[in-house]
Amino acid sequence: MDAQGLFDTALVRRNRLRALVHAPEGSDFLLKLVNAELSERLAAVERRFETAIALHALDDQLAVLLAASGKVERLIRVEQDQRMLDGQSETALATDLELFPIAAEAAGLVVSPLSLHLVNDLPGLLVQIRQALRPDGLLLAAMPGSGTLSELRDALITAETELSGGVSPRVIPFTDVRDCGALLQRAGFALPVVDAETYTVRYDTMFALMRDLRHMGMANPLCARSRKPATRALFVRAAQIYADRYSDPDGRIRASFCVLYLSGWKPHESQQKPLSPGSAKASLAAALGTREHKF
């Protein structure tokens, strides 16, 4: 365990391996959805990439989509554990989540679905990715953002406060669009874009949601989590609160997954440059027919 970080990286590995090996069919629905969305976004890029990296995608779904895209000549999978690589060796690497063992300017494209939120030093990893990209190379990624599992967080906090007068962190913190964009800029990416899509999934009970989260490899990996087993009374009360606050007329509960989609380019002289302040020939206010305010 990394005592200095937010996440227990050994537990993250165990959670993800358990999901890969033991999850029932269909429990990877969110990963499939995100992989398909990333593939669609890549299809809109009018470029072919000599070398692409599928980064911590858990299984080969993303690699299959990238290979079928017609955009990639050579594909390398990078995963947290060799067991996630289906026995591949020549075109695959196993490494820690915090490391990106690709040579400088060796990759044209890096695609990462639903893993960057588990990295202790995300700014550092983004810098490593940017360094490994060729000039005008592209990063495409997706990660859960602020608002994800907000209903579950609320129910657990309320129940634990009622029963014990305090709370233990049981749902990891998620970043928002603005902070994510700032991270890309800080890491040196040009033309950064971050947008959010919220997917609402319905369940019979909170316990069904929690089962799916374990099957996704999303069980609580926080270093600050309580080491005392939670009582059944806590989860029963949380399930009642969840149903009271977040159920539809048919009695099923709602769970929100807010996914942030990120893109950024390795700087290159051919890229479009933003206008310097005050250089625009017509103001936005004039175009909209509104009054301009200066600050």
Score class of each variant (00 low, 15 high):
Asp96Trp: 10
Arg211Phe: 00
Ala132Gln: 05
Gly188Tyr: 10
Arg130Glu: 14
Ser150Trp: 14
Asp204Pro: 03
Ala103Cys: 11
Phe189Val: 13
Asp195Lys: 03
Leu125Val: 11
Met143Cys: 10
Gln88Trp: 08
Asp154His: 15
Gly165Pro: 04
Thr205Asn: 02
Val167Phe: 15
Ser115Arg: 09
Gly166Lys: 10
Arg211Ile: 05
Ala103His: 15
Val110Trp: 02
Arg134Cys: 13
Pro173Asn: 06
Leu97Pro: 03
Asp86Arg: 12
Asp86Leu: 04
Thr161Ala: 01
Leu126Lys: 05
Leu118Arg: 13
Thr200Ser: 12
Asp176Trp: 04
Ser168Met: 03
Arg211Cys: 00
Asp204Thr: 06
Met206Asn: 06
Gly166Asp: 03
Val194Lys: 10
Leu139Arg: 00
Thr148Glu: 04
Ile129Trp: 12
Ile172Ala: 06
Leu133Gln: 04
Val110Lys: 00
Ala159Ser: 12
Asp176Pro: 07
Ala155Thr: 07
Ser150Cys: 15
Leu138Glu: 05
Phe207Lys: 02
Gly166Ala: 14
Asp96Ile: 02
Leu114His: 01
Thr158Gln: 14
Ala182Asp: 14
Thr198Ile: 07
Arg134Tyr: 04
Gly108Leu: 12
Pro113Asp: 00
Thr161Cys: 00
Glu98Asn: 09
Ala107Phe: 10
Ala132Lys: 09
Thr161Gln: 03
Leu213Asn: 06
Leu122Glu: 07
Arg130Tyr: 10
Gly147Phe: 06
Gly87Leu: 04
Gln131Phe: 12
Leu97Ser: 08
Leu97Val: 08
Val193Leu: 01
Val167Thr: 15
Arg130Val: 11
Ala159Tyr: 07
Ser89Ala: 11
Val119His: 01
Asp212Pro: 01
Leu133Lys: 07
Asp195Leu: 03
Glu160Gly: 02
Ile157Tyr: 15
Thr95Met: 06
Gly87Ala: 03
Leu116Ile: 03
Ala155Gly: 08
Ser164Leu: 12
Arg153Trp: 00
Gly166Glu: 03
Ala103Thr: 13
Glu197Ala: 08
Ile172Met: 09
Arg170Ser: 10
Gly124Thr: 01
Pro123Ser: 11
Ala190Asp: 10
Pro113Ala: 04
